[in-house]
Every structure is written in structure tokens, then in C-alpha cells.
Design a protein around this nucleic acid. Structure first.
Length: 236
DNA sequence: TCATTAAATTGTT
DNA sequence: AACAATTTAATGA
């Protein structure tokens, strides 16, 4: 199926932004500003959405699809920091600090991505208390996830680490619209969890046995999110 | 629409 | 890391 370049009308951008809580809470004049300045772009699977060491000119949101934040060392080894599903926004740290982006952003599936220019982001912070509160909450929630990650990798067995890596993609504050059927290969989940694909394959099999997930080709269907999120709690 | 083929993903050692 | 099996997507009759 060929992707035909299409007119990126404001109406569809408005539609995409309307799904975002932070946008709907903005005052009308700020909504107009964001609507006028926000860009939308499609990315094919495997395409770079943003590159490491480039200026952080945009605050980035995923309207549809799945992105990952990762770096590749020249030794060939890679490290994936986070997966960002539909409804997720990221890059506020780099924009706030006016620094170069510290990671590559790669589309794991065909994705529709929103770009809010850094100047607009700063103007929202300065003029909207509600937006500032949203951003603080976003930063706080992500920090909590990273702390939990460290704890998980040191205290949990491998099956539990896989379970929680999956559950993280459903964080209700960061990613409020993640769909239950994740189109994500086991290899990418392994990169995300920092484990081998073989071991993740086993872990997923065992989670499926427990009825927590369903497995299909390039797809993981989350059937019991609460159980996934607390899997292995007795080890903590 | 169906058969063939290549590529991606999965399951296993 | 390597290999076989399975699934999908693309191609063309």
C-alpha cells in the first residue's frame, strides 16, 4: 500500500490534538496558537523521527503508532530507553534545557507524529498554569517509571521484568490511549526490557499460560493489565 | 482470486 | 548465535 502525500489540513490536526488532555484544557487563544503551529507527519516502520545530537526544536507527540527512544553505540550494541505508544508525549526535558537530543527516536510501526515547536511549548508554559501543571505531572510520572525500572531490573526475576515492561506502555497518565492489542515484535520488547529475545519469548509464553496476555504474529494482546502490572510483587 | 516468493517474526537448541 | 518453522506482504499470472 503506497502512502500518498496528502493535504495536512488543520481540521485533522485539530482532531489529533483534541485527543490530548493538555490541549483540551488550554484557553481558546492558546489552542489557536498550538493548532496553527503544530506539524503532523507520517513515518514508516524503521524510520527516524528525530536524531540524537540534533537540536531539540520540538515537543513530540504520538497520535497513532509506536516510537522508541534509543541509542546505538558504535560497538553495535543498542540501548532502548522507552517505548512511546499512541497518546504519549516526550522530549519536554530536552526542550526545557535547550540541549541537543540525547537519543534517537525511531518509529517501530507506521506512525503519525505531532510536532509542537519549542517556542510554542515555552509560551504555553509561561501563559498557562494548567499546562505547567500538566508538564510537571508528566516529568514526575516519567521519573517514577525510571526509578521503578531500576528497582525492577535489580529485584525482579526475568518473567516479572517482561510483564512490567509491557505494563509500562499502559501508564494511564503518560499513555492514556494505548490499545490492548499491541503491535510489537518480541525482538523489540526484548530491546525495551534489556533482555535477550529468546528469554523474552519464554517469558511471554509463561504469561500467556497464566492468561495475562494473548500472543499472535507481531502482536501482544494484553488481557489482564492489573495482574501484569503487579506481577512479581512478592519479590519486592 | 490464487499461487509463488521474499522478508519478517517466532520457536527452539 | 544459529537454525528451522511460521506468518505476512508483495508480486504476477
Amino acid at each position: 500500500m503506497t502512502e500518498i502525500p496528502r493535504q495536512e489540513g488543520l481540521s485533522s490536526t485539530r482532531e489529533a490534538l483534541s485527543a490530548c488532555l493538555w490541549f483540551t484544557c488550554l484557553e481558546a487563544d492558546l489552542q489557536t496558537l498550538v493548532l496553527a503551529q503544530t506539524q503532523r507527519r507520517h513515518f514508516a516502520a524503521g524510520e527516524f523521527v528525530a536524531r540524537r545530537d540534533e537540536p531539540s526544536d520540538y515537543w513530540i507527540g504520538v497520535h497513532d503508532g509506536l516510537l522508541k527512544l534509543a541509542v546505538d553505540s558504535h560497538a553495535g550494541r543498542g540501548c532502548t530507553f522507552a517505548g512511546i505508544p499512541s497518546g504519549g508525549w516526550f522530549g519536554e526535558g530536552s526542550v526545557l534545557k535547550h540541549e541537543l537530543r540525547r537519543y534517537d527516536v525511531v518509529a517501530l510501526r507506521p506512525s503519525l507524529v505531532l510536532f509542537v515547536p519549542a517556542q510554542v511549548f515555552h509560551e504555553l508554559l509561561a501563559r498557562s498554569l494548567g499546562f505547567s501543571v500538566f508538564v510537571i505531572g508528566q516529568l514526575n510520572e516519567r521519573l517514577g517509571e525510571f526509578i521503578a525500572n531500576i528497582q525492577n531490573t535489580r529485584l525482579l526475576d526475568v518473567n516479572a521484568r517482561v510483564a512490567r515492561s509491557l505494563a509500562q506502555l499502559f501508564n494511564p497518565l503518560l499513555y492514556p490511549q494505548t490499545r490492548k492489542a499491541l503491535q510489537l515484535s518480541q525482538e523489540e520488547l526484548a530491546l525495551l526490557a534489556g533482555l535477550s529475545r529468546q528469554r523474552v519469548n519464554r517469558a511471554l509464553g509463561s504469561l500467556q499460560e497464566l492468561g495475562l496476555i494473548g500472543l499472535a504474529y507481531n502482536c501482544i494482546d494484553v488481557r489482564d493489565l492489573p495482574a501484569l502490572a503487579r506481577y512479581g510483587a512478592e519479590q519486592l
